[in-house]
Design a binder for these strands. Sequence first.
DNA 1: AATAATGTTACGGAAACCCGTAAGTATTTA
DNA 2: TAAATACTTACGGGTTTCCGTAACATTATT
Lengths: 221, 221
Amino acid sequence: MFKKVLIVDDLMSINLGVNAMLKNGYTQNVVYAHYCDEAILKLKRAEQDGEPFDLLITDLSFKEDHREQKLKNGEDLVMTVNMTWPDLKVIVYSIEDKIQRIRRLIHQYQAKAYVCKGRYGLKELEQAVAAVNKNSTYLSPSVETAVNGQEVNEIDDFDVLLLNELALGLSQDEISKQFKEKKITPSSLSSIEKRLNKLKIQLQANNSIHLVAIAKDMGII
Amino acid sequence: MFKKVLIVDDLMSINLGVNAMLKNGYTQNVVYAHYCDEAILKLKRAEQDGEPFDLLITDLSFKEDHREQKLKNGEDLVMTVNMTWPDLKVIVYSIEDKIQRIRRLIHQYQAKAYVCKGRYGLKELEQAVAAVNKNSTYLSPSVETAVNGQEVNEIDDFDVLLLNELALGLSQDEISKQFKEKKITPSSLSSIEKRLNKLKIQLQANNSIHLVAIAKDMGII
DNA sequence: AATAATGTTACGGAAACCCGTAAGTATTTA
DNA sequence: TAAATACTTACGGGTTTCCGTAACATTATT
């Protein structure tokens, strides 16, 4: 049983199903938030009142709105939550299926479960809640192997940064200079070439354009 | 009033809300399909039985499955429907917000309405159904201006083809040769360079990598 | 401490890209 | 039909990328 559960999702229709499931044996106290910023506020308030949440279920993608939001998406939210309330258990429930992003959520931001919205989404979410309730973790079968599989990729932060700059239209020379200014190593043109070459082999890209296209498809950038 | 409505969407939870809305004054006969191929079968069957559908509401993105599907996504479905049953009215209801794709759906495949899933999605969908019922059309406010606005872009099929080949990792020279084989004009390296140059100016890209990244973000490819 | 292994930087030449100019071809307009 | 316009192709040369080789620096191993 959970004492208090916070659900963050801007699409009402989905909340309904989740709510029914939770009320059916897992908790009596379900609170909703439709924006990430709103979620943070409710978490803070609950903490101040001495009745903190012990489970957070959140989507990843939120439609933008007229209201300015500090946290633009679920990944920002999970990151912030992990830094501020490291003990709060987090389940991500999203249509998103970019492996790299899911990896980040699980390994870097300590999310306890990741469930793909889909045909069997609700059923899987129920299993996820049960698992987290028992201090275990859960991953949708469709992403399980991909996330826990041996680190075939080994794409680190530097690689991601590099790919991002490339996708922003900077030349390799410009990236080199920029890295030197920001004291990011390695920064030589040669090293950048070498790193891109490694990535091209890993991701089986013919050239830099192909590389960025693949990286975008995989959700690395 | 509609005689028969087909809803295509693999996420049950969303269908519930839509169903409630429709039954509330628009139709008595709502049928569901969870796969695009299944939708086609039901459309054919209904036609054979002399009781064809007169409204189709569909999502765009479908999770893949163990079952092999000919039509992979909603865009394929809308295209096929438009070719096979040009009189069947189509409403697209999706989280997707890539302008170029929506443009294609409306102008090329004759979809009657496009509604963004979101905070006010159900409300907007209701307006869309009402509009289509009166032989009108409907677009979510958030995409309305973008779709109907003067063709700022002017990006044609050739441009899209070109960008696609580029994103697949072909060099400009390879693309030129391929176009010559396939009798696609213009095919000279020079023309391809020129066209890419035009696109870089239009989309404000620094180089080809940047160009492909932008095109992917905009949903052009 | 010496060696090995890995990571970073440097350099040179071939290939690809970028960009301007201009000639040739097709279409439109007067 | 002739002139004007737009489109396609060709070419040259500077820039960037690509790829191999190799020197230098740092870390790990024995």
